[in-house]
Simulated scan of single mutants.
Amino acid sequence: MKVIVAGAGLGGLALANGLRGAGIDVAVHERDRSPLVRRQGYRLHLSDVGIDALTSVMAPERRAALLATAHTPAPRFVRFDPTLKELDVLEHDGLHLSVDRQTLRDALLAGVAETIVYGTRLAGFQAAVGHVTARFDDGTTVTGDVLVGADGINSAVRRQYLPHARVVSTGLVQLYGKIPAEPAASMDNVFTAITGPGHRTVGVAYTRDYATCSFGARAEDLPSGLHAMTQDQLRSLVLDMTDGWHPLIRRMIAQWHDVFPLELRTSVPIPPWPTTRVTLLGDAVHAMSPAAGAGANLALRDAAALSAALAHGGPLIPALRSYEQEMIDSGFAAVRVSAANGARFLGQDPLPSG
């Protein structure tokens, strides 16, 4: 069996690790020209779902080395107002870890680096009896038994395969960056949110050597051209928008660095579709707002479940159908939870009904 994977994000890399471990031929095609050309985030939350998935797909020594770099936060979500008065505390069950996203990517890359072809953007595919052929924008083609769209929220696989599947704006924009660990030490939780008037939110997540700090607001309340702003301009903008907030919050923002803006979008759940030799995982099918902290964990879970289904050795289409049934149910359930949390705490637009 040969599996073609479009996309070398966390889900695609985890899938490639699982397939290689099962002795299945895998070719990963990534549109970026290297794994370092885009900023994709910093600290990453791993729940039991993600940790179990990594246990399934990674070599034990690599997984142990990765987890040795992790930080264990208090297992709770805490929300404050701008004076740092506590508003909500939600305790979490299970194990929760904070890891550096690049450290996780590097660990996954180490097992499958030779399977990845960079600078190859999927242009389309053609499914036929017994095989599927992927076509890339450089004119090359690759034929295999299965094509997996692991190519993220702007998935070219989804666009052709499920043209009716929508990705919509949440109405929110987030500025995402890093701060030194020290000012965030008192907020060592799975996630801490400070929510203020006008749906303005500062999010803090502590990890071993630093903390992530984000600022979110309604898109209409932010100026255009955020991507063209300097770091000083972004800091000044958010300091102006958090005028009068607690001095600790202001100190965090003043120490912000490596900040980049991101429009928050979400998929809209759709009914199951007929199973073929083309399938999807992670953000390519069930992208969600970060309000449930579940996106990366579900991508890793999808990868582990799909690699196990393909390694089982039974008929291909029933194996893919079994994977998709669970992926669709749990993935879109998480989309709905994230949307509900985002609407409640962040001012996210309601999820469209269809």
Results as ranks from 00 to 15, higher is better:
S98M: 14
A128T: 10
H131Q: 02
L95M: 08
R101A: 12
R166Q: 05
G124P: 06
V168H: 11
A128Y: 09
F136G: 06
V173I: 09
R159Q: 09
N154I: 00
L109W: 05
V148D: 04
G177R: 12
V146R: 13
V146T: 08
Q160F: 05
T120S: 08
Q160W: 03
A165P: 04
V142D: 09
P163L: 03
A156V: 01
V132S: 10
V168C: 10
A156E: 12
D106W: 00
H96Y: 13
A156D: 10
Q126L: 15
V168L: 09
D88Y: 12
G144H: 09
A150G: 06
Y176M: 15
L175W: 02
T120L: 03
D138L: 05
V146C: 11
F125G: 09
Y161F: 14
L87F: 02
L97G: 05
D106G: 09
V142M: 01
Q160A: 10
G144D: 04
A123Y: 01
V112F: 07
Y161E: 14
G144M: 07
R159L: 11
G177E: 08
L104S: 01
H131G: 15
A156T: 05
G111Q: 04
Q160E: 07
T140P: 00
L90N: 13
S98Y: 03
L162Y: 04
R158Q: 04
V129Q: 03
T120H: 14
I179S: 13
L108K: 01
D145V: 09
Q126N: 12
L97C: 07
R135P: 00
D138Y: 00
I179R: 12
I179L: 09
H131T: 13
A113D: 09
G111V: 00
R159W: 02
V129Y: 05
I116D: 08
V132R: 13
T103R: 15
I179Y: 03
H92I: 13
L175N: 10
T133Y: 10
V142R: 08
G149T: 04
D106V: 10
T143S: 15
T141H: 06
V142K: 01
F136D: 06
G119C: 03
S98F: 08
A113W: 07
A128K: 07
I116K: 04
T133E: 15
I153W: 07
Y176D: 11
D93S: 15
L108W: 02
T115H: 10
L97R: 08
Q160P: 00
V146G: 15
T141W: 10
A156G: 13
G124Y: 03
A123P: 01
Q126T: 11
Q102M: 10
A150F: 08
R105Q: 09
V89R: 15
E114Q: 12
T103Y: 05
L109R: 00
D93E: 15
G124K: 03
G177V: 05
R101M: 10
G130A: 15
V129G: 08
H131D: 14
L175I: 06
I116C: 04
R166V: 03
N154V: 02
S98W: 09
V148H: 12
E114F: 06
T170N: 01
V167Q: 08
A110C: 12
V173G: 12
D93F: 11
D88H: 15
D138P: 02
I116F: 05
R121S: 14
Y118C: 07
D88C: 14
G111T: 02
L104C: 11
